Amino acid sequence: MSRRLLHITEEETAAVVDEDLALQAAREAFAATVDGAVFPGLAVHGSDPKNRFTLKPSASATHAGVKIGSYWPGNPEQGLPRHHSTLLLLDQTIGRIAAVLEVGKANAYRTAAADALAVDLLARPDATTLAVFGTGHQAAYEVRAVSRVRPVAEVLVVGRDEDRAARMAADLAAEGRTAMVTGAEEACARADVIVTATNATADAPPLFQAAWVRPGTHISCMGADAPGKRELDPELFSVARVFCDLPEQARRMGESQHAPDKTVLTPLGEVLTGRVSGRTDDADITVFDSSGIGLQDLCLGLALLEKLDMTL
């Protein structure tokens, strides 16, 4: 039987994705992690080891697929972004590809939505000051997503390149936000919420010291999504309550690959569905280790198809 293969272009998905769609898809995905199948991702590299990509498989009761997320650092020389993502959805009756969705921009919304969901579930209700570490592709998406779940009044931008940090602060100010560049220690001293969105690795110093983080802070970290990557001071694991998308994956390729074996990793989906408590005290330091799961991509892809009035 011949079936039509859907091809949804980058331009089509980018035109309909927004923070609300991505956040709702994240809620559905993390709720599904509690009783459904969750498969760990795989981080590999291209023929040139500096070019990396991840495979994120997923399945629900009705759909299944895999997201391929690529990072080609030399792309700007060709006028292309470093990051791109492609979602493949399977025809559940015959096992062939039913749809190909290009979701480069949508993936940035998807990643930020998971971090914002963690902020919504774990940060203090009165959190208004956001510190963002990183000035690259993902950072501004994180600011906008967190601003959907907390009344962010001030954004503190921390970057190792001062010029890029200044440009990002100016861009956020142009959106009507109060944004300024600060150092890492000052940002930690003032922030209610910290988001880390960098490519930092374990052979470099952490982005900030655990001792700088004040009681009551929530941290969503998304940069560690492959073995050898690290953003946080390992000492944070001794003072913080740690949440993640999938414990098995977080210990292998997330920030928690650097955590002591005794560290308790609580799936965020269990907080979302009320099975465990999130923040229990205003003084809690909470960390969300976001390495990304395929269910996020599946739920986002299906939401995009619905928004585009398309069905498999």
Rank of each mutant, 00 (worst) to 15 (best):
S2L: 14
R4I: 12
R4L: 14
L6V: 05
H7N: 10
I8A: 04
T9P: 03
E10H: 11
A15V: 04
A22V: 08
Q24T: 14
A25V: 13
A26D: 06
A26S: 11
E28F: 01
F30C: 03
A32P: 00
A37P: 01
F39L: 15
K50W: 01
R52L: 12
R52P: 01
T54M: 13
L55V: 12
K56Y: 09
P57S: 10
P57V: 05
P57T: 10
S60N: 10
H63C: 05
H63Y: 10
K67S: 08
I68G: 02
G79A: 10
L80D: 05
L80R: 14
R82I: 13
H83R: 04
S85W: 00
L87C: 03
L88H: 11
L89I: 14
Q92A: 12
Q92W: 02
G95K: 08
I97Q: 05
A99G: 02
V100N: 05
N107R: 02
A112P: 02
A112I: 03
A116T: 02
L117K: 11
L121S: 09
L121C: 09
P125H: 12
P125G: 06
P125D: 15
A127L: 04
T128C: 06
A131D: 03
A131V: 04
V132D: 06
T135C: 09
Q138N: 03
A139Q: 09
A140W: 01
A140S: 13
V143W: 04
A153P: 00
R160C: 07
R160P: 02
R167T: 12
R167L: 10
A170Y: 00
L172F: 04
E175Y: 04
G176Q: 02
M180G: 15
G183S: 12
E185H: 15
C188N: 05
R190Y: 04
D192E: 10
T196I: 08
P206S: 07
F208W: 10
F208T: 07
S220F: 01
A226K: 12
G228R: 10
K229T: 09
L232V: 02
P234I: 12
E235I: 06
F237E: 06
R241C: 00
C244F: 03
D245Q: 05
E248R: 10
G254H: 05
A259W: 04
P260M: 13
T263H: 07
L265T: 14
E270M: 14
L272S: 05
L272T: 04
G278S: 06
A283P: 01
A283D: 15
T286S: 15
V287N: 06
D289K: 09
D289H: 10
S291E: 08
S291R: 00
G292K: 07
G292I: 03
Q296S: 13
L298A: 08
L298Q: 07
C299S: 13
L300D: 09
G301D: 07
G301Q: 03
L302P: 01
L302G: 05
L304M: 08
L308I: 12
L308Q: 11
M310D: 01
